[in-house]
Nucleic acid binder design. Structure first.
Length: 471
RNA sequence: GCCCCCAUCGUCUAGCCUGGCCUAGGACGCCGGCCUUUCACGCCGGAAACGCGGGUUCAAAUCCCGCUGGGGGUGCCA
C-alpha cells in the first residue's frame, strides 16, 4: 500500500513551498488509496517550539489536508537510540571527539585551498581504549556514520529521473549531536522505514541528503523507499521563495482573504498540470483523481501572486456556494467593524456583488458603502459634484424615492431613466452623482446594485448630507 | 571552488518519452475592441517563447554532445 508523509520542522507558519509539498504528497497518497502521515520533525531542541507546531497544524487544516497518522520525533528518541546502538555495534558508526572549533578550522582551510570540504575521518580509527579514556574524561562527542569510500550511489527519482552521487563528495556525517539528540538524516530514515513510508515526497533541496540516507537504510537493513524530489518555488527574482519576497506563508494569504480552495488549486498548478488538459480549475476530488508524481515538472516554478488572485476571484464568483462565501467572508466583515447582524441582508449583498472582488480584503473595501452609516467623500469628488448638475439629480432622486421602492437593479435603472427624461442631463452625470454621494468613490460595485440593496434610510441620509453641502 | 539538478511567451504551462499533425496550443498579466445610461463580470481580437552552437536524420521544440544561463546543496538546520 502506498504511504506518504509530510515532515515539516516546526519553525513558523507553513511556507508556500512546504504547503505545495504537503499537497502533492497528500494527493499522491489519496490518488493511490494510500495513507498519509504527518510527522513533526522537532529533533532540533534549540529551534523547535510548540506554538510553531500549532500554527503549522492550523494552516494544514485550513488548507483541508487531512492526515491518517501523526507523530512527533521528540517523542521517539528512545527508538532512535536503539538504532544508533545497532550502527555502533555493526561498525557503521563511531564516536567523534572533534570539537566544533576544530571542524570549523578545517572547513575554513578547505575553503582557502579551494577544495570541497569533507570530514577528515580523524576519529574513525580511534581504538576502543582511547574512546573509553576520552569518555571517562567527560569529553563531549558526536556519533558519525562511516561512509564507504568511493561508492557511487544511484537512485531513480520519480520526478527528476536518474540521479547519481559519489560518496566521496561528502564525508562521514554526524547522526547524533554532542547533546545526545539524533540529527535529521538519521531519524528521517528510521522513521520512514518504521512507519512504512513507500514514497518519500519532499523538496529538491533534499537531493544531497538522499545518498546519505540510502547508506543508512542499507546499513540498517531497511528497504529503500521511492523518492520524489519536487523543484523549489521561486520568487519573482528567481531565487528560492523566502521572507524577503513578502507574503510567503499560507497564513499570509489566509489573512489577506484568499480561499483555501483557490490556494490549494493554484499551488497544484505550480509545477504540475494534468497531461494534455487545458483546464485550470479543479475540485479537490478531481485533483485526487488526476494527480500523479510523474507529471510533476522537474524545473522550478516562479510563484505568481496575480494569477492566484485571479483564481481566487474565479472561486468567489463562480465556484463556491453563497453559503460558503458567507461563512468564509464573515470574519473579514466583522473585523472591519461592519454591522453584519442581518444575515439575510449580508447574503443578499454578497450574492449581488460577488463578481466585483478577487479577495476578501478587497471585498471589505468595496462593500463598505453597504455596511457603514456614513461614507467619506474625498475633496476632489466634491469638485466633481459641483461640476455636474448633481444638486438637481440628487434632489430629484430623493423626491422620487419617496413614492418608490428600489428592489432590483432594474428599478434603479428605470428611475435613472425618469430623471434623465425630466432633467435632460447626461446619463453619466446621474450615475456619477449618485455614486459619489452614496459611496464617496468613483469606483466600486455597480451603483444600481448598491441602490437596490442598501436600506433606504442610509441612502437618503447620505444624499441629504451632500445636498445640504452643495446647495 | 566542488557536487547535484534544470532550461518552451514576462509568469504558470501543453507538446518532448514514442521526431513529421507545431504556421508551437491554453492560462495569468499587458494592449485594443464589444457589451454596458454607472462599476464590474463576460465576450472578441492582439503583441509575446522553443537560450546558443554543433551533430544524428529526408525531417528536431522533440534524440545526442558542448557552451551559456538559472536553481539547489556544500552544518553537531530540516
Amino acid at each position: 500500500m502506498v504511504k506518504t508523509r509530510f515532515a515539516p520542522s516546526p519553525t513558523g507558519y507553513l511556507h508556500l513551498g512546504n504547503a505545495r509539498t504537503a499537497i502533492f504528497s497528500y494527493l499522491f497518497a489519496r490518488h493511490n488509496d494510500g495513507r498519509f502521515v504527518l510527522r513533526i520533525e522537532d529533533t532540533d531542541r534549540e529551534r523547535s517550539r510548540k506554538e510553531y507546531e500549532e500554527m503549522l497544524l492550523k494552516d494544514l487544516e485550513w488548507l483541508g489536508i487531512e492526515w491518517d497518522e501523526f507523530y512527533r520525533q521528540s517523542e521517539r528518541f528512545d527508538i532512535y537510540r536503539e538504532y544508533v546502538e545497532k550502527l555502533l555495534q555493526s561498525g557503521h558508526a563511531y564516536p567523534c571527539f572533534c570539537t566544533q572549533e576544530e571542524l570549523e578550522r578545517e572547513r575554513e582551510e578547505a575553503q582557502r585551498r579551494g577544495v570541497a570540504y569533507r570530514y577528515s575521518g580523524k576519529c574513525r580509527t580511534l581504538a576502543p581504549e582511547e574512546v573509553e579514556e576520552l569518555k571517562r574524561e567527560g569529553k563531549p562527542f558526536t556519533i558519525r556514520f562511516r561512509v564507504p569510500d568511493g561508492e557511487e550511489i544511484v537512485f531513480e527519482d520519480l520526478v527528476k529521473g536518474h540521479i547519481s552521487i559519489n560518496a566521496d563528495d561528502f564525508g562521514d556525517f554526524v547522526i547524533v549531536r554532542s547533546d545526545g539528540s539524533p540529527t535529521y538524516n538519521f531519524v528521517v530514515v528510521v522513521d520512514d522505514a518504521l512507519m512504512g513510508i513507500t514514497h518519500v515526497v519532499r523538496g529538491e533541496d533534499h537531493i544531497p541528503n538522499t545518498p546519505k540516507q540510502i547508506l543508512i537504510y542499507r546499513a540498517l537493513g531497511f528497504e529503500v523507499p521511492r523518492f520524489a524530489h519536487l523543484p523549489v518555488i521561486l520568487g519573482e527574482d528567481r531565487s528560492k521563495l523566502s521572507k524577503r519576497h513578502g507574503a510567503v506563508s499560507v497564513r499570509n494569504y489566509r489573512e489577506e482573504g484568499f480561499l483555501p480552495e483557490a490556494l490549494f488549486n493554484y499551488l497544484c498548478l505550480l509545477g504540475w498540470s494534468p497531461p494534455g488538459s487545458e483546464r485550470e480549475i479543479f475540485s479537490r476530488e478531481e485533483l485526487i483523481e488526476l494527480f500523479d508524481l510523474k507529471d510533476v515538472n522537474s524545473a522550478p516554478a516562479v510563484f505568481n501572486r496575480e494569477k492566484l488572485r485571479w483564481m481566487n476571484g474565479v472561486y468567489i464568483r463562480e465556484i463556491i456556494s453563497l453559503e460558503r462565501l458567507y461563512e468564509a467572508i464573515l470574519p473579514f466583515l466583522e473585523s472591519a467593524g461592519y454591522d453584519v447582524s442581518d444575515e439575510d441582508y449580508v447574503k443578499k449583498v454578497l450574492e449581488r456583488t460577488r463578481d466585483a472582488y478577487d479577495t476578501f480584503t478587497e471585498a471589505v473595501e468595496k462593500l463598505r458603502p453597504f455596511f457603514v452609516d456614513d461614507v467619506e467623500i474625498a475633496p476632489e469628488f466634491w469638485a466633481r459634484l459641483e461640476d455636474m448638475r448633481s444638486y438637481d439629480v440628487l434632489s430629484t432622486f430623493l423626491r422620487k424615492l419617496e413614492e418608490k421602492e428600489l428592489n432590483t437593479p432594474e428599478d434603479v435603472k428605470a428611475l435613472a431613466r425618469e430623471i434623465q427624461k425630466e432633467l435632460g442631463v447626461k446619463p453619466k452625470e446621474i450615475w456619477h452623482s449618485l455614486r459619489i454621494a452614496v459611496t464617496g468613490q468613483l469606483e466600486g460595485v455597480g451603483i444600481d446594485i448598491l441602490l437596490s440593496t442598501l436600506p433606504k434610510e442610509r441612502m437618503v441620509g447620505r444624499i441629504q448630507k451632500v445636498l445640504d453641502r452643495i446647495s
